[in-house]
Design a protein around this nucleic acid. Structure first.
Lengths: 181, 181
DNA sequence: TGTCCCATGTAAACTGTTACATGATTAT
DNA sequence: ATAATCATGTAACAGTTTACATGGGACA
């Protein structure tokens, strides 16, 4: 497995949690990993297949009554080894975020101030929504999932999201003041 | 031009600044847009070609003595119109950053605490470097480029970078305390 | 009746990077 | 010498999203 393809490791990592099917992996990504890693079904299913081919996971088909068939994946010892190896690799680079608002703001000389302020207000609102989502997940982990061995680490990644989102909201307010006539 | 392809608009937008060649656009991106938008030559040159084909820019080849030929691009009125139209479009979604550190941290139950702390320290250092770069650019704009009409907006985007980076550095310190034995 | 949840998967399209190719000038 | 800066461009590859295809059960 290529050292650089983090998405494969992300899926392998999720197999160490309680996720065992493509569907539940997707759900976990959409809730808990959403603010720092997104993966679509188009990647998940082929990657699971690949992990099995490489011997990093095994599959078992479960025929369910009244529900569609389910494929349960289990990480192998070899899979655990390569996952750990990858986690230990130093981080190559800081995230290169693509931010549409900043891109537009960069060119906002070509636009009326009011329109820029509108963008800013809408962005602020989205950030607030996101913040509330994070706080909701935080609450949920604290009250329902603290027995999960991974929970403390999940809370740390959430805290990152909360802190940087708060900083972005502050920036929105300051920028509004700066631009207001 | 497709409404969604922001990279094309980024290049079109840069033609409204003093950038007129593929090379100088790349330089601008690597310095001033670096923290929220990255574009490689592999995109820049074909995109410039496309912009001309679509009538959003014009080219003029400049034969330079003692230097390689240069192609100077100029945005057209039609180009200005579509750029403005794009800037006014509401922002669809918040940035979906991919963060390798958070991904690894999420799975760090599978690793010794000391190794996680090492990752954290390295990350903190990278963030500090980035912060210093931002402050350097801020200083440079303030002292040398305040006559540029775009400068106030550039400073706002930089401020975003500085604030969120500071928040991330704070998080590193708090997380270190939390994880330390 | 319709929509959401469960559940899996593929193909085409799109986006973006990397490596390569060329070549002159200027500074160390 | 040799490295850096100026300057343009393409081809192959890698990564990712989107739309499509299928189909049962639960719930309103």
């Amino acid at each position: 497995m290529a050292k650089e393809n983090h998405t494969q490791y992300a899926i392998l990592g999720l197999l160490t949690t309680e996720c065992r099917t493509g569907y539940s992996i997707k759900q976990m990504i959409d809730t808990s990993l959403n603010h720092f890693w997104k993966i679509s079904y188009g990647q998940i299913y082929p990657t699971l297949k690949l992990l099995v081919e490489q011997g990093y996971a095994t599959v078992e088909s479960q025929v369910q009554e009244g529900k569609p068939d389910k494929k349960e994946y289990t990480i192998t010892d070899e899979g655990k080894r390569v996952l750990k190896e990858w986690i230990q690799q130093p981080i190559q680079q800081l995230p290169g975020e693509k931010n549409e608002l900043l891109l537009k703001l960069f060119f906002s000389r070509n636009q009326d101030v009011q329109e820029t302020l509108d963008h800013l207000a809408a962005y602020r609102e989205k950030l607030t929504d996101r913040l509330n989502t994070y706080k909701g997940i935080q609450e949920m982990i604290n009250t329902q999932l603290m027995d999960q061995a991974d929970a403390p680490f999940w809370l740390l990644t959430l805290d990152y999201g909360i802190r940087t989102t708060l900083a972005a909201i502050d920036w929105c307010e300051e920028t509004k003041k700066t631009l207001s006539p």
